[in-house]
Every structure is written in C-alpha cells, then in structure tokens.
Design a protein around this nucleic acid. Structure first.
Lengths: 215, 215
DNA sequence: CTTGACTCAGAACACATGTTCGTGTATAAT
DNA sequence: ATTATACACGAACATGTGTTCTGAGTCAAG
C-alpha cells in the first residue's frame, strides 16, 4: 500500500480515466478504450501500465476477462463507503409549472450519484434541475440540482416545494403552519414571507438537499 | 413503477445472478457466464432475455460492448460505483476572516463523501462550512458547505473566494478581470457587482461546488 | 562505453464475447 | 386450421479484447 514514488503522469491519467469511465458507464473500460483516452496507440503499453498499477495495489485485474479490472479500495482518495445511490434527474423545474415526474422515464444518463452518508433515506427521492432564476429567493439559482422526497405533507421548518393553486406557481419555501394560514418563508432572510390559505397550497415534496456545480 | 406482468422465473434468476456477480466482481458478467449460471446453453437465449429485461427497464445495455450492461436505478440497493472520495471539512468560514486551513488537522469525523463523478478533480480540494448569512449575495446561506480548490489565480467566470485586503473581508463572487480593475459579480443576478483594485484582492481558491443539506 | 532497469510502439495471435439466423415448441387468439 | 406471440435451441459469424513477441528509446549505475 505504501507507494513512495509518485505515479507516472501516464498512470495518473489512466487512473483518472478509469475513475471517470466507471462513473459514467458503471463498467470498466477495455484496454483499447483506455489507450485511446490517454493517447497510447499500443495495447501492450496500456497493459504494461495496468500491470504496474496492479503491482502498486491501485487496482486488481481478472486474467483473460474483458474489462476485468476494478479499482482497489485503498487507492488514494478512494475510501470504501457505505454505498452509493443513484438518483434519477426527473426533469427541469421552473416556477411556472407544477412538478411533474415522468414515472416511466428512466434516462440512465441523467442521474446523480450521492454517497449514502449524505442522504440517509432514499425512498421516493428524486432530483430536479432548476431552470431559470425564479427561485433566487430560496437561495437556489439557475442550474442548481434540488434533491427532494415526494410527499404531500410537511412539518414546520421543512423546506418544501409548494404548488400555489391560485398563482399557478411552484415555489421553494420554508413551511410553517399557523392557526389560520400557512406561512411560506423564503430562505433568504432579507425577504418577507408570504401567507396563503391552506386550501390553496399543494405540497409537492420536501427538499432534502441543494447542490450547485460550478464549471 | 410499470411492471404489469411478473418476471419470468428465468429472468428473475438472471437478475439475481447479475446482482450477485456485480457484488462479487464489481464488473458485469458476460452473456455466457449468465447462461452457465442460470442453466442456459445458448447465448442467444440469454441475449433474448436480456433484451426483454432491458425493455422492461430493469437494466440497460451497450451495444457490441462486452459486459456492457448495468442494472437500472430501479432498486436502490447499493451498487458498486466509480469510487468515493473523502474531503475534509477544514473549518468554518465567515465573512470577517481570511480562509485558514489547518493543514495538519485532519479530523476524520468532519469530512464529506462525494462520488467521483461529481467531482472529477480532487487535488488541493477542501470543504468549508459557511457560518452566518454574510454570503447571501453569493446564493450561499448559513450552514452551506462550499467545496473549493486552493489556488491563487482565477479565470474570468470562475467563482472564487476572494480576500479583500482593504475591507478585511472574505467574499464569494464571480471573478472578471477588466482593464484596470477587477469586477466581482454576485451570483444573485439582482445585485450589483463591486469593483476593486487588483492589488487589493487575494484569490484564496475557486469554488467547485456548493452543497446544502436540509434537516 | 556497456549494462540493465524502465518505458514505449507496433503487430500478430488466440480466444472471449456479442450478434444473427434458421428452426422448433408451446399457448392463445382469430 | 391458421396466425400471432412469447420463448427456446444450436450453430455460425464478426469482432471486441487480453496476451505475447520483437524491437527500440531513455537514463542512471558500473
């Protein structure tokens, strides 16, 4: 496990590519795919470097099995974990539309992977990508990914996606039930809450997480 | 979801075997391996049933790629993945202080796990937890976790953590270099940029990701 | 200079593996 | 009976893919 010497630039690139490929395809790349990605014309060179990496314990291989390689758990920056869950990105969300999850649509490409410790529960969980700046008062900006659990009730303090029937509008706000009305509080503390009739609100789900990726 | 008819016994067995195989080997089985395990002599029969399973959305396949199949996100059971990286949470960050990363301190407990596909690069990456509402103009709220890479240069359009020497203030803004000044643009499009003397700005790092967990 | 590691390129080889085609057998609907 | 559909079998095919061999370049040690 102890690797005094640094990885060669090429081997670093191979490791990176395998990681990336594995993340995208869920199965390991072939020798030739690695070669093309890293800029190696010969399969034997890739094979050679893979053997190197295997000796160092960075990965393990199955002989004579196509794509028969796996990253080791003790590779740098990699830690065995409680598991990874894959959440489908159901679709874009904008302020002017109700949230609609196409149940049958499983676009395998559009999914997001989260570690289990980040999201303990995973029942009825889905992700939406925000389109537009309509939710800046919820501290959610264009392109953000909102991970939520589908549910139709809310408890005080929950951040929920609420459909306001009289305004034809979906909004992300903190939910507070008051005696005769419902207070929807923006996440931005400088903005004022809105008050609505309980009959005019449909809870679409509870926001569990907001994730923003930058370039 | 949409599974009117029950799976045939054979297809059930195939699914079970794929799950088991994937758990043991971390890469998918070949058609012939599936056949042998389930008791099918012909590869075409396996292929046929795989196509059936694919139509039902239980798995997806890559054409003409050996072992090019993956289970769908149907079952949120743990699925092996490209790897998980652990990022230490260096410390709290507030507007009134420069960012200080205690290099030696690696509190194993305070770390965040991300899947590799979410964060391709991982050199000099660390995480900070935001304290206070001083960064609402960056669409970052109290408690948010900011993941950034330590660097002292920035390119136009990067979101950076900048230390304004004359104001004694750390701020998260989009970075734009203009002829004689630097424009720091808030993420919130309704707010105005600030302009500063290039000599009065120290780039602390580039923001890669913002993550907000809600109860 | 010579030697021997370490790394690389190219080509040929062997076989692992996905694909396809023709055929056969049920069961149910027409 | 006929047709349609779902499922199964075996064999041949095309190619994806790991393996191996020959040769060569680099670089530090003897």
């Amino acid at each position: 496990m102890a690797s005094r010497k640094p990885l060669s630039l090429r081997q670093e690139g191979i490791m990176d590519f395998i990681r990336k490929y594995l993340g995208e395809n869920r199965f390991p790349p072939s020798i030739r795919e690695i070669g093309k990605a890293v800029g190696i014309s010969s399969t034997s060179v890739v094979n050679y470097n893979l053997r190197r990496l295997e000796e160092r314990g960075y990965l393990s291989r199955e002989k004579e099995v196509s794509r028969g390689l796996r990253l080791s758990a003790n590779a740098p920056d990699l830690v065995p974990s409680g598991g990874v869950l894959r959440i489908p990105i159901a679709g874009p969300i904008a302020a002017g539309e109700p949230i609609d999850i196409g149940e049958g649509v499983f676009d395998e490409e559009d999914a997001i992977e989260l570690t289990h410790d980040l999201l303990p529960q995973h029942d009825n969980v889905y992700a939406l990508q925000v389109r537009g700046d309509s939710m800046i008062d919820a501290m959610v900006s264009d392109g953000d990914i909102v991970i939520m659990r589908q549910q139709h009730e809310a408890r005080n303090g929950d951040m929920v996606a609420a459909w306001l029937t009289d305004r034809d509008e979906t909004t992300l706000k903190y939910f507070f039930k008051e005696p005769d009305r419902i207070r929807l509080q923006p996440a931005n503390p400088t903005m004022d809450p809105i008050y609505v009739d309980p009959a005019a609100v449909q809870i679409q789900g509870k926001v569990l997480m907001v994730l923003r990726r930058l370039s």
